[in-house]
């Protein structure tokens, strides 16, 4: 418990998590407000007024959350405070699990604000039964952001522990999530099949995000299995990070 308190204080007493957290909420929700004021059935006939459609900009928040989580540990390496951390808690696994827990809670909260916030502002501007949370799919796409943001935070933290350098960790995470996964789909023949097993693709399938006009039939997994798959990858990456941190010199 004291480890959790220590990690919470450490995270929230620096400025970058606040900035990142603020941006992770303001950017997607603000964008959603802009969208909601502009969109109506006449000027956007293709737009489906569903809860899932209110989550179109959440990816912006998720990208910022990745930066937040990576910085939570890379800045410790940068300023050498990781040594104090391990000095205070020689059980590195416990210390890093405590850090993971704090990051996960924070990113889950951000995910909740982004998911429900985007949905709420959209609904406030377009009242109608279409935007009610009715089906399981509706709930998954909105409340699911909590789980996806939390796992994204843990995954990014794992990468941060492995890479240790801010620039490297942030570049790898963003380039991978925003570019590489999409680029893989471009490879002829095998690209699509590989893409179906990419972690952020899996997270998007859980949320039920429409990926343009792409063929999303015949996917290998269902939404909850995709979430489990995303969670498994997160556990592997974070586990590898913690394992590496225990093995190497601080």
């Amino acid at each position: 418990m004291s480890l959790l308190t220590a990690e919470r204080i450490k995270l929230l007493s620096t400025r970058s998590p606040w900035w990142c957290g603020l941006l992770a909420i303001v950017l997607p929700v603000g964008f959603t407000v802009l969208l909601a004021t502009q969109v109506n059935p006449t000027n956007a006939p293709g737009f489906e007024f569903t809860p899932a459609a209110t989550q179109g900009t959440a990816s912006l928040g998720r990208a910022v959350v990745m930066v937040l989580a990576a910085l939570a540990v890379t800045s410790e390496y940068r300023f050498g405070t990781i040594r104090s951390t391990f000095q205070a808690a020689p059980q590195r696994v416990a210390a890093l699990l405590a850090k993971s827990a704090v990051v996960v809670v924070l990113t889950a909260v951000i995910g909740a604000v982004v998911g429900f916030g985007s949905w709420a502002v959209f609904r406030a501007l377009h009242s109608g039964p279409d935007l009610d949370l009715v089906t399981a799919a509706d709930w998954r796409s909105v409340a699911g952001e909590v789980l996806v943001f939390a796992l994204t935070g843990a995954l990014a933290l794992g990468v941060g522990i492995l890479v240790r350098q801010t620039a490297g960790a942030v570049a790898i995470l963003l380039v991978y999530a925003l570019l590489v996964e999409g680029l893989i789909g471009v490879i002829p023949k095998v690209g699509r099949d590989i893409q179906h097993w990419m972690p952020f693709f899996a997270a998007d399938r859980f949320l039920g995000i429409r990926d343009g006009g792409d063929d999303l039939q015949n996917l290998p997994l269902g939404p909850w299995a995709y979430l489990a798959y995303f969670a498994a990858i997160t556990v592997v990456v974070l586990g590898a990070g913690i394992f590496a941190a225990v093995r190497r010199d601080a």
Partner: peptide, 20 residues
Amino acid sequence: ISVLLIWPLLVENLVQLIPR
């Protein structure tokens, strides 16, 4: 780095969501 990656890879595409 965040700005330089998120801007071209995400923001530039997200603006397409805005109708008209």
